[in-house]
Design a protein around this nucleic acid. Structure first.
Lengths: 237, 237
DNA sequence: CGTTTAATTGAAAGCAGTCAAACTATGTGG
DNA sequence: CCACATAGTTTGACTGCTTTCAATTAAACG
């Protein structure tokens, strides 16, 4: 993933491979980080899904981002001394834990890797900005359509989905917490999108019927994902 | 600003000072970056205020962040090849433009500076996450109270405001676009907060009457700002 | 199979939006 | 100094999208 932008030298790559790490399996619902934690390591999601979340004082949950296989979920914690949000698993997953200080040393010793970390961090920030727009200025129908588009494109860029659709790794309630809606309304919107002929659903499996129209409804433009063109896999229609 | 976290060596600091740059004055409303731009330089806001924004397909505007004096407004553009949002000035301002490639070289040549850039970028991402929570899961009253708290703390941490309040650098319409509301409703909420004895206003000047209560209403906790404790200036009561 | 979790549906209520107009401050030109 | 223009703030009445509350149905799980 770090190579997605910067071209790293063989030496840089070896340095990454030489990082100490520990692989572990974790169950759905488990926390990788809790808000307020003082982090000791950073994790990379090998497989499985997770999400970032914060809770308001009133107990409402806002999901901030969904992490897919290949995502580094804790570069924050490489430099920030206290975690400002929690990361929780959506599915059973495999993660690699890397000690925080080893990563800090790596970045200081290999400037190209540092640049790659900046790049990845900037892309995440870009996605976060788009989410502000999504919850702040789009109605429920557009929000759901948008997040479905984002999933599809991100999963495909990692080769985790074909052009036709994907398996949604979350419940409608979690989808609601990601879009600033209620689960009841998410359900109604999903049914509307299906009735309109934009998608089909069976359980959590979403298939695009009209990809172009779904993008239009969701006001979706993949630019903010900063995915290199060569990663693009054509959607049907 | 870059020194806020990492302790940079004299050599690193000199390298920053040796960066080529150009100072210019810009008028309110002017764009520093437009969405879709291919960036050639990064800017630092010397004085004045600006904001990041995106427009939806329907023409609605979402303000993503407010930049205050001392903020680097374009580290994104140091590594991302196309701008995913616009930056527009709120007030007349002074900015320093630094060529993109000079910054890239700086970061590659000085790993400690790279780490500092990562740090600043991570803090910005943290603020962006809190904004998602704000527009996604708080009601109008809490959103406004929260953003007023954020302003106060950020301005004070840069020595730009005293503990009693600050001059809001934006109209109620812009405040609405920052909180995902309408200007009409922002107006009503501001009047409510004033009537409740939490703040007083004269024009754009906001004074805290009950700082503690305002934080409670806004569900505000400064942790996400990652401002070092020594930057803290005590608020009255 | 009973139990639990998730999805679905209906009816009613509410927060914020929309529309429209009045008001205020500031600035301009005659 | 006043009429007029402009930008921003304030108010009121009405509408509506989304939430809330409650109940039912369906799927997943030991």
């Amino acid at each position: 993933m770090l190579q997605s932008h910067a071209r790293l030298s063989a030496e840089d790559r070896q340095a990454i491979l030489d990082l100490p790490y520990r692989i572990r399996k974790v169950d759905p619902g488990a926390y990788l980080v809790r808000e307020g934690d003082v982090p000791t390591h950073c994790s990379v999601l090998i497989d499985g899904f997770a999400f970032r979340q914060k809770l308001t004082g009133e107990g409402a949950r806002q999901i901030l981002a969904v992490c897919i296989p290949g995502d580094a979920i804790d570069f924050q914690n490489m430099f920030l001394d206290i975690s400002d949000h929690a990361v929780q698993l959506l599915t059973r997953a495999t993660v690699a834990d890397i000690p925080r200080d080893a990563l800090q040393r790596l970045v200081l010793a290999h400037a190209a890797i540092g640049s790659a970390v900046i790049y990845v961090t900037l892309v995440e920030a870009s996605i976060q900005r788009e989410w502000v727009v999504n919850v702040g200025r789009r109605d429920a129908r557009a929000r759901i359509a948008h997040i479905l588009c984002e999933f599809g494109v991100r999963l495909e860029s990692r080769g985790l989905a074909s052009g036709g659709g994907f398996e949604l790794p979350m419940t409608q309630e979690q989808l609601a917490d990601a879009t600033g809606l209620t689960s009841v309304h998410v359900n109604r919107v999903l049914k509307t999108l299906e009735a309109e002929g934009l998608i089909t659903r069976q359980r959590r499996n979403i298939q695009y019927v009209d990809w172009r129209a779904l993008q239009d409804v969701g006001d979706f433009n993949r630019r903010y994902l900063h995915i290199a063109p060569e990663d693009h896999i054509a959607h049907h229609a």
